[in-house]
Design a protein around this nucleic acid. Sequence first.
DNA 1: TTTCATGAAACATGTAAAGTTACATGAGAA
DNA 2: TTCTCATGTAACTTTACATGTTTCATGAAA
Lengths: 154, 154
Amino acid sequence: MRRDSKLSGVLHVLLHMAEIEGPVTSEFLAGVMQTNPVVVRRIMAGLRDRGYVRSEKGHGGGWQIACDFETVTLRDIYEALGAPELFAMGNRSEAPGCLVEQAVNAAMNQTFREAEALLLAQLGRITLAALSADFHARLAARGGDFNPGTAHAV
Amino acid sequence: MRRDSKLSGVLHVLLHMAEIEGPVTSEFLAGVMQTNPVVVRRIMAGLRDRGYVRSEKGHGGGWQIACDFETVTLRDIYEALGAPELFAMGNRSEAPGCLVEQAVNAAMNQTFREAEALLLAQLGRITLAALSADFHARLAARGGDFNPGTAHAV
DNA sequence: TTTCATGAAACATGTAAAGTTACATGAGAA
DNA sequence: TTCTCATGTAACTTTACATGTTTCATGAAA
């Protein structure tokens, strides 16, 4: 299975949007992410439904951030995406009649539930502002300037 | 991506083998798992390489357990399978030039690394004996008898 | 009324797990 | 020896699903 990169992708988009004044088109964001505008609209739909971003049609339209980076966490974004499956491993069958399989499932499920709880707690501790601050620290460390429109040309 | 169920499957096989005297064929195990004998050989190959099971060709051949259930843990089995990917989510690109993406990756990687450590530690705490004991507890609770050959007929 | 943008459905593609086929190898039985 | 049974393994097929693409409807500004 290919690994789901929607969370990674949408965070990338959000941090770029934060560097840009005014609305940004799906077309532009698709260029930044090296993908298709429809893919951008798809992953942004969930965020729009939750009010984290706003979209406008027509001339001068596009996407804009509509939330406070200080309070929205990666967990919020993850859930806005529909809380996609976190683990690549699962049980062969979910409601087996075989007692052996029930025992196996019980052990695996508990283990993965605990890992999921940790994962979500950790994501809940990282705000978009913290991510953005990390980006700016990296930018300062490199001593460079950031042009959001050309940063991906390389 | 379909979810990887090799670990779940191989544990199922091992616990069944523990209930049976003498060697068991891939054919039989495939019946238990409702899959193909070649799939069984495939997932068992890693365990054989580590000496957790033994296989014999020819008449009266098949698979036998060759390890101590008290000491082998689910983590050992997981690693014998080649330590397959645990998470369904990943970064869009692993070595991005974009500083935004580097910041995103750094946050995600740390979070997932911690979850992976927890997951492996938990798997390392569960022995095959513990799993088997849980199965027997379930069997006793149901008050039934276990016939490993027909348990999956239902 | 033209152009630019999103919204959404339908379809195509790429990838990896699982399933299948085919055949080589080796071990015991006849 | 020769037959049968079993694993070992490579190659191929199937299936599921994330992602990519096409297409057209809708609505807003020029």
